[in-house]
Computed example of a mutant assay.
Amino acid sequence: MIHATSIIRREAVDEDRIVDIITLDHGDRHRRRIVLHADGGTAFLLDLGKADVLEDGDAIRLDSGWLVRVRAAPERLIAVRTDDPLDLPTLAWHIGNRHVPAEIARDAIYIAYDHVLLDMLQGLGATTEIVERPFRPVRGAYHHHEHGRDPHHHSHGDGHG
Protein backbone atom coordinates (compact mmCIF):
# COMPACT_ATOMS: atom_id res chain seq x y z
CA MET A 1 0.00 0.00 0.00
CA ILE A 2 1.11 3.55 -0.72
CA HIS A 3 2.11 5.48 2.42
CA ALA A 4 1.76 9.17 3.18
CA THR A 5 3.59 10.62 6.15
CA SER A 6 3.46 14.40 5.70
CA ILE A 7 1.16 17.30 4.92
CA ILE A 8 2.15 20.12 2.60
CA ARG A 9 0.38 23.33 3.55
CA ARG A 10 -1.64 25.14 0.87
CA GLU A 11 0.90 27.91 0.31
CA ALA A 12 3.74 25.42 -0.37
CA VAL A 13 1.90 22.96 -2.67
CA ASP A 14 3.57 22.30 -6.03
CA GLU A 15 0.58 22.11 -8.39
CA ASP A 16 2.58 20.02 -10.89
CA ARG A 17 2.87 17.20 -8.30
CA ILE A 18 -0.91 16.79 -7.74
CA VAL A 19 -2.13 13.34 -8.90
CA ASP A 20 -5.52 13.15 -7.20
CA ILE A 21 -7.95 15.01 -4.94
CA ILE A 22 -9.55 13.79 -1.73
CA THR A 23 -12.77 15.40 -0.51
CA LEU A 24 -13.27 15.21 3.26
CA ASP A 25 -15.65 16.82 5.73
CA HIS A 26 -14.37 18.69 8.80
CA GLY A 27 -14.39 15.61 11.04
CA ASP A 28 -12.52 13.51 8.51
CA ARG A 29 -9.87 16.21 8.03
CA HIS A 30 -8.55 15.71 11.58
CA ARG A 31 -6.47 12.56 11.30
CA ARG A 32 -3.30 10.73 12.24
CA ARG A 33 -3.55 7.22 10.79
CA ILE A 34 -6.20 5.93 8.39
CA VAL A 35 -6.55 4.28 4.99
CA LEU A 36 -7.98 6.86 2.58
CA HIS A 37 -9.38 6.61 -0.93
CA ALA A 38 -9.04 9.74 -3.04
CA ASP A 39 -11.79 10.83 -5.43
CA GLY A 40 -9.88 9.50 -8.45
CA GLY A 41 -9.24 6.11 -6.87
CA THR A 42 -5.80 6.52 -5.29
CA ALA A 43 -5.72 4.46 -2.08
CA PHE A 44 -3.10 5.18 0.57
CA LEU A 45 -2.31 4.89 4.26
CA LEU A 46 -2.08 8.28 5.94
CA ASP A 47 0.42 7.71 8.75
CA LEU A 48 1.33 10.98 10.46
CA GLY A 49 3.51 11.19 13.55
CA LYS A 50 0.68 12.95 15.40
CA ALA A 51 -2.92 13.90 14.66
CA ASP A 52 -3.20 17.04 12.55
CA VAL A 53 -5.84 18.96 10.64
CA LEU A 54 -5.89 18.71 6.87
CA GLU A 55 -7.01 22.14 5.67
CA ASP A 56 -8.81 22.87 2.40
CA GLY A 57 -6.09 23.34 -0.22
CA ASP A 58 -3.39 21.41 1.65
CA ALA A 59 -1.84 18.33 0.07
CA ILE A 60 -0.84 14.93 1.40
CA ARG A 61 2.62 13.80 0.23
CA LEU A 62 2.70 10.19 -0.91
CA ASP A 63 5.90 8.18 -0.44
CA SER A 64 6.42 8.45 -4.23
CA GLY A 65 6.66 12.25 -3.91
CA TRP A 66 3.31 12.83 -5.66
CA LEU A 67 0.62 14.84 -3.88
CA VAL A 68 -3.08 14.36 -3.18
CA ARG A 69 -4.92 17.69 -2.81
CA VAL A 70 -7.31 18.04 0.14
CA ARG A 71 -10.71 19.55 -0.63
CA ALA A 72 -13.19 20.46 2.11
CA ALA A 73 -16.54 18.77 1.48
CA PRO A 74 -19.75 20.79 1.66
CA GLU A 75 -21.49 20.28 5.00
CA ARG A 76 -24.78 21.29 6.58
CA LEU A 77 -23.99 24.38 8.63
CA ILE A 78 -25.75 27.14 10.50
CA ALA A 79 -24.84 30.65 9.32
CA VAL A 80 -25.26 32.96 12.32
CA ARG A 81 -25.75 36.68 11.66
CA THR A 82 -27.04 39.74 13.50
CA ASP A 83 -28.52 43.06 12.48
CA ASP A 84 -26.09 44.83 14.81
CA PRO A 85 -22.44 43.78 14.24
CA LEU A 86 -21.73 44.42 17.93
CA ASP A 87 -24.01 41.49 18.82
CA LEU A 88 -21.89 38.99 16.84
CA PRO A 89 -19.08 38.81 19.45
CA THR A 90 -21.65 37.99 22.14
CA LEU A 91 -23.00 35.16 20.03
CA ALA A 92 -19.41 33.99 19.41
CA TRP A 93 -18.90 33.90 23.17
CA HIS A 94 -22.00 31.72 23.66
CA ILE A 95 -20.84 29.37 20.88
CA GLY A 96 -17.30 29.21 22.27
CA ASN A 97 -18.62 28.58 25.77
CA ARG A 98 -20.04 25.32 24.38
CA HIS A 99 -16.67 24.37 22.83
CA VAL A 100 -18.20 24.14 19.37
CA PRO A 101 -15.85 24.51 16.38
CA ALA A 102 -16.71 27.75 14.59
CA GLU A 103 -15.70 29.49 11.40
CA ILE A 104 -15.56 33.25 11.88
CA ALA A 105 -16.26 35.46 8.87
CA ARG A 106 -16.64 39.23 8.67
CA ASP A 107 -20.45 39.09 8.68
CA ALA A 108 -21.25 35.64 10.07
CA ILE A 109 -20.23 32.73 12.25
CA TYR A 110 -20.61 29.23 10.81
CA ILE A 111 -21.10 26.16 12.97
CA ALA A 112 -22.06 22.56 12.24
CA TYR A 113 -25.82 22.06 12.22
CA ASP A 114 -27.25 21.23 15.64
CA HIS A 115 -30.93 21.85 16.41
CA VAL A 116 -30.22 22.65 20.09
CA LEU A 117 -27.67 25.33 19.16
CA LEU A 118 -29.99 26.63 16.44
CA ASP A 119 -32.75 27.14 19.02
CA MET A 120 -30.33 28.76 21.47
CA LEU A 121 -28.99 31.20 18.87
CA GLN A 122 -32.47 32.15 17.68
CA GLY A 123 -33.46 32.68 21.32
CA LEU A 124 -30.53 35.08 21.67
CA GLY A 125 -31.84 37.09 18.70
CA ALA A 126 -29.54 35.78 15.98
CA THR A 127 -30.59 35.51 12.38
CA THR A 128 -29.85 31.94 11.30
CA GLU A 129 -29.76 30.23 7.95
CA ILE A 130 -29.05 26.58 7.13
CA VAL A 131 -26.40 26.43 4.39
CA GLU A 132 -24.38 23.77 2.55
CA ARG A 133 -20.73 24.75 2.17
CA PRO A 134 -17.24 23.64 3.19
CA PHE A 135 -16.59 24.12 6.91
CA ARG A 136 -13.29 25.76 7.81
CA PRO A 137 -13.38 26.40 11.56
CA VAL A 138 -10.78 28.45 13.37
CA ARG A 139 -8.01 26.28 14.76
CA GLY A 140 -7.55 26.34 18.52
CA ALA A 141 -5.22 28.85 20.13
CA TYR A 142 -2.94 26.06 21.32
CA HIS A 143 -2.74 24.43 17.91
CA HIS A 144 -0.18 25.87 15.53
CA HIS A 145 2.25 24.75 12.89
CA GLU A 146 5.81 24.15 13.93
CA HIS A 147 8.22 26.17 11.85
CA GLY A 148 11.57 24.81 12.92
CA ARG A 149 11.28 25.94 16.52
CA ASP A 150 10.27 24.40 19.81
CA PRO A 151 6.47 24.86 19.97
CA HIS A 152 6.60 25.03 23.76
CA HIS A 153 9.31 27.67 23.92
CA HIS A 154 8.08 31.17 24.58
CA SER A 155 9.47 34.21 26.27
CA HIS A 156 8.08 35.68 29.45
CA GLY A 157 10.16 38.84 29.05
CA ASP A 158 12.19 37.99 32.15
CA GLY A 159 15.30 36.74 30.42
CA HIS A 160 14.46 33.12 31.18
CA GLY A 161 12.52 32.64 27.88
Rank of each mutant, 00 (worst) to 15 (best):
P151I: 03
L124Q: 10
Q122C: 13
I111R: 00
E75M: 14
E55H: 11
R69H: 04
R98L: 07
I22H: 08
A141H: 12
H156P: 02
H99N: 13
V138P: 00
H154K: 04
G40E: 14
R139N: 14
F44P: 03
A4H: 11
W66C: 05
H37E: 14
L54Q: 06
G57V: 08
A73G: 03
L48Q: 06
D28K: 08
V100H: 07
P74E: 15
G65L: 06
D56M: 03
T90D: 14
M120A: 12
D119S: 11
R98Y: 00
D16E: 11
L67F: 13
H30A: 04
D87N: 14
V116L: 13
G40I: 06
M120E: 13
D83E: 14
V70W: 01
V19S: 12
R98K: 13
L77T: 02
T23N: 06
I104W: 12
R61A: 15
W93Q: 14
A112G: 15
R33W: 02
R136K: 15
E11F: 08
G65Q: 06
R76G: 02
D63N: 15
D20C: 10
V19W: 04
R98T: 00
P85Q: 08
P89Q: 12
R69I: 02
R81I: 06
H26P: 00
T90W: 07
I18Q: 06
M120Q: 09
A73I: 03
E55A: 14
R81C: 11
E132T: 04
L91C: 04
R71H: 13
D25Y: 01
D83M: 07
A92G: 09
I22R: 10
G49S: 11
R31H: 03
E75W: 01
Y113F: 15
H30K: 07
G57E: 07
R32L: 02
G161C: 04
L62P: 09
L118E: 15
E55N: 13
R81N: 05
L88W: 05
M1W: 08
L118V: 03
D14E: 15
G125E: 09
A112Y: 00
P85R: 11
A141S: 12
W93S: 09
Y142W: 09
R149K: 13
L36E: 05
G65K: 11
G148F: 07
L24F: 07
L67N: 05
L67Q: 06
G123L: 12
I111D: 00
D47E: 08
T127D: 11
H37Q: 11
D58S: 06
I111E: 01
A12H: 13
P85E: 10
G157E: 06
G65H: 07
D39P: 09
R106A: 15
G148T: 09
A112F: 00
D107H: 13
L88T: 09
R32F: 01
M120K: 10
T23D: 08
D114P: 00
A102W: 01
P85D: 10
E75K: 01
E15D: 12
G161P: 02
R31K: 12
L118D: 14
H3I: 03
P74S: 14
T42R: 10
D58I: 05
S155I: 02
G148N: 12
E15H: 05
I78M: 11
A105S: 07
I104M: 08
P151K: 08
V13Q: 08
A141G: 12
L91Q: 02
D150L: 04
P134E: 12
E103T: 04
V53D: 04
A38T: 06
